[in-house]
Simulated scan of single mutants.
Amino acid sequence: MSEPTEPTAPAEAAQPLDTRVLARTVEHLAERYAGVFPPELVERVVFESYATLARTARVRTYLASMAGHFADNRLAALAHAKDRDASGVVQVLFVGVHDTGPAQIAAALLAHYAQDTVEVRSAGVLPGPAVDPRALEALAARGVEAGQVYPKPVTDDVVRAADRVITFGSPDAVAVYEHTVHQHWDVADLQDAGPEQVEAVVQELDDRVRALWAELQG
């Protein structure tokens, strides 16, 4: 397997107040991944993650915090791809068009059922500004805590790390690697959907995720 691709895109200038938060995040993650990645790579991923999220963020209040979470997630993916055989945790990636509806719902449901036995991620080809609030309401009604969720761009590091990639919208949304099992779920989007349609989509996703979880356990 080839080595993980290091992020190379230049980071946009961070807001002054965010720069201090990002600097602390770099220190924290550099300690966490000491011996795995050099500090320079950690810093690059953190500031690149900030720049990427800033392009679609409507509200910047928690942007630095979200960037830290996003960077940690990407570094974990890179570490898994770097030493895949050493990790016994299955990596599942849900990819939607905007990462605001079905992909987020499916990821939250699988994380709820699998807990820490599966590493679950979601991403979007063209990430939107925010997760559809109706998706969060439908999950809450099922007792599923979505946690800190926000639309994220699909990146090579998370695709490379994935053992399973499940796409929505277009089956060709991402090019998966040879070791990855790819499935396409033809599920309706939530855009312009009424309450009954939203509930139907969530129920279909719940059924599919339960079947996937049973398969992964087997």
Rank of each mutant, 00 (worst) to 15 (best):
residue 168 F to W: 09
residue 213 W to R: 05
residue 19 T to E: 10
residue 26 V to C: 04
residue 127 P to M: 14
residue 140 A to H: 15
residue 132 D to M: 09
residue 127 P to E: 15
residue 183 Q to C: 15
residue 145 E to M: 05
residue 100 T to L: 12
residue 173 A to V: 01
residue 174 V to A: 04
residue 131 V to D: 15
residue 34 A to R: 09
residue 2 S to Y: 09
residue 184 H to P: 11
residue 82 K to Q: 02
residue 109 L to K: 06
residue 181 V to D: 14
residue 125 V to T: 10
residue 182 H to I: 03
residue 94 F to P: 01
residue 7 P to N: 01
residue 121 R to D: 03
residue 131 V to A: 14
residue 65 S to V: 14
residue 74 R to M: 02
residue 154 V to G: 04
residue 8 T to H: 00
residue 29 L to W: 02
residue 27 E to V: 07
residue 50 Y to R: 08
residue 198 V to E: 06
residue 179 H to F: 14
residue 134 R to V: 09
residue 215 E to D: 08
residue 198 V to C: 02
residue 2 S to K: 07
residue 115 Q to C: 05
residue 29 L to R: 02
residue 140 A to Y: 13
residue 205 L to E: 06
residue 32 R to Q: 11
residue 121 R to N: 10
residue 98 H to T: 14
residue 166 I to Q: 00
residue 6 E to A: 14
residue 75 L to V: 01
residue 69 H to L: 06
residue 83 D to S: 01
residue 136 L to F: 09
residue 11 A to G: 12
residue 102 P to E: 12
residue 217 Q to C: 13
residue 159 V to T: 05
residue 133 P to C: 15
residue 58 R to S: 10
residue 205 L to M: 13
residue 90 V to T: 10
residue 125 V to S: 14
residue 148 Q to R: 11
residue 71 A to C: 04
residue 190 L to I: 05
residue 30 A to M: 03
residue 3 E to C: 13
residue 164 R to E: 09
residue 123 A to E: 14
residue 124 G to K: 08
residue 90 V to L: 03
residue 28 H to Y: 09
residue 37 F to E: 07
residue 43 E to V: 06
residue 70 F to V: 12
residue 30 A to K: 04
residue 9 A to N: 00
residue 106 A to F: 11
residue 91 Q to M: 01
residue 90 V to M: 07
residue 152 K to W: 05
residue 105 I to C: 04
residue 192 D to M: 10
residue 190 L to C: 08
residue 131 V to P: 10
residue 31 E to G: 02
residue 196 E to I: 12
residue 28 H to N: 08
residue 146 A to D: 15
residue 51 A to E: 01
residue 18 D to V: 01
residue 172 D to L: 04
residue 108 A to V: 06
residue 62 Y to R: 12
residue 148 Q to F: 03
residue 192 D to G: 12
residue 72 D to H: 05
residue 170 S to Y: 15
residue 122 S to H: 11
residue 202 V to H: 01
residue 87 S to L: 13
residue 55 R to I: 01
residue 171 P to N: 10
residue 165 V to A: 03
residue 161 A to E: 02
residue 130 A to L: 08
residue 1 M to E: 04
residue 205 L to N: 09
residue 54 A to I: 00
residue 87 S to V: 15
residue 82 K to G: 11
residue 57 A to P: 06
residue 103 A to F: 05
residue 51 A to L: 05
residue 19 T to M: 15
residue 131 V to M: 07
residue 55 R to T: 09
residue 16 P to N: 05
residue 84 R to V: 14
residue 201 V to S: 08
residue 120 V to I: 05
residue 70 F to D: 09
residue 191 Q to T: 14
residue 8 T to N: 00
residue 19 T to I: 11
residue 67 A to V: 00
residue 134 R to H: 07
residue 78 L to D: 12
residue 187 V to E: 09
residue 58 R to P: 08
residue 69 H to E: 07
residue 187 V to H: 02
residue 68 G to R: 00
residue 168 F to A: 00
residue 76 A to Q: 03
residue 5 T to Q: 03
residue 65 S to F: 10
residue 1 M to H: 06
residue 28 H to W: 04
residue 34 A to P: 15
residue 210 R to Y: 15
residue 31 E to Q: 08
residue 186 D to Y: 01
residue 210 R to T: 04
residue 201 V to G: 03
residue 124 G to D: 08
residue 92 V to A: 07
residue 172 D to N: 12
residue 173 A to K: 02
residue 4 P to H: 01
residue 128 G to K: 15
residue 202 V to F: 07
residue 85 D to H: 13
residue 194 G to C: 10
